[in-house]
Design a protein around this nucleic acid. Structure first.
Lengths: 212, 212
DNA sequence: TAGATTGTTAATCGATTAACAATC
DNA sequence: TAGATTGTTAATCGATTAACAATC
């Protein structure tokens, strides 16, 4: 019985990817169950916190027994990314950083689909990046109205990012991965900025959890 | 009179780069002073928090008047990065991501100096990346003992990162920018991982503040 | 002096940790 | 049944916000 998502605090959400990685590893190693205290030890936290966290989402565990790794893995996977319901992402700016990040999205993330890219460089328009077509930036508005992508990856400089962000919000973009040299949350309290933690094995999808 | 650094909480440290950007902008626009309440309004926080934050580092303000922009800019700059005391960074892994990140370090960060890079690819060894020589990864240990770099940027896959991290720690590396697909803090509670928030105009240098 | 605004102490709020009853 | 371990309520801790005295 899952609880209203906006009851889940940001600290809890931030911990989910770490849980996910450990549990995935255990599953791969054939571990069948784990107790909150064992999990706490390897996570570097307390058993209390582990139980509190899991109980935000409903009772995953069995009293007297512990937590079943498969159940845990499935539940946390569902929370972080439902494969059958990938989030549509568009890339703005297909420069060196944009191309690298696209590869990363394709290969290293789950739950996201790179649907299209946009650039102003005529040499790039019409080509594609990691399977996504590169459109003229002028077609951005039309594209968004038609396809309603959920998130945008910004790989453009500060100034264009500053001017483009509010437009994107008005076009229905609900979240950003912002690689521009500009803090989007500045003057845009509406914007849910989810910076990618590249060093984190999976990004914190607080965005999804808090908005769905 | 600066207060013992370990008294400064992580939330405060995380807010510093945002303060920095706003204040830099004001300085560039010729603004001379600002009150905590004005700053709070544009930061999206409370005047109380602004004053509490600044007072962690000593009295920047003037009662009855407000905060002098130049003083604020200088003090926060000093906290985030002292130009005359740049942190030595080494890059591990000169692939596509490594090269892109190097450019970013050179062009978009302050307070860091890319001193050397390491790779196992013979085609790269001997060349350089953004002015830093690319060494054979085998020379890593010797290099660290001799030059004592402070931080390492990891742009290598998960497995090499996992095995290399403890070695780097034992070689005196105090912080990481971790772009590998592996959470370094896992099983290494000693490691101060500072993931780069590329989307943040400046990275949170909690590392420096908490360690110096 | 009066008004404004900081520095700092006190109150509130939220997150973490501890405790324990429920139950496998 | 006894031991183990969860789910959940209570206690603690820390961060944010409010209040106000100090002072420019």
């Amino acid at each position: 019985m899952s609880v209203s998502p906006n009851k889940v605090s940001l600290p809890v959400i931030r911990r989910l990817p770490k849980y996910y990685r450990y549990i995935r590893e255990m599953q791969q190693n054939g571990v069948a169950k784990i107790s909150s205290s064992e999990l706490a030890k390897i996570m570097g936290t307390t058993a209390s916190q582990v139980r509190q966290d899991f109980n935000c989402f409903g009772g995953f565990g069995q009293q007297g027994i512990g937590y079943n790794i498969d159940v845990l893995y499935n539940e946390i996977s569902k929370l972080l990314f439902s494969e059958d319901n990938k989030i549509e992402v568009i890339l703005i700016g297909v420069g060196s950083l944009g191309q690298t990040i696209s590869k990363w999205i394709i290969h290293e993330t789950r739950g996201y689909h790179l649907a299209a890219a946009f650039d102003s460089n005529p040499q790039l328009i019409g080509k594609d990046v990691c399977g996504a077509p590169i459109h003229n930036i002028r077609e951005l508005s039309e594209y968004c109205k038609k396809n309603k992508p959920t998130m945008a990856v910004l790989c453009i400089p500060k100034e264009p990012a500053r001017t483009l962000a509010p437009t994107l919000v008005s076009l229905g973009i609900k979240g950003f991965w912002n690689f521009s040299h500009y803090d989007l949350s500045v003057n845009n309290p509406d914007i849910t900025v989810e910076n990618v933690h590249l060093g984190d094995s999976l990004m914190t999808l607080g965005y999804r959890l808090r908005n769905e």
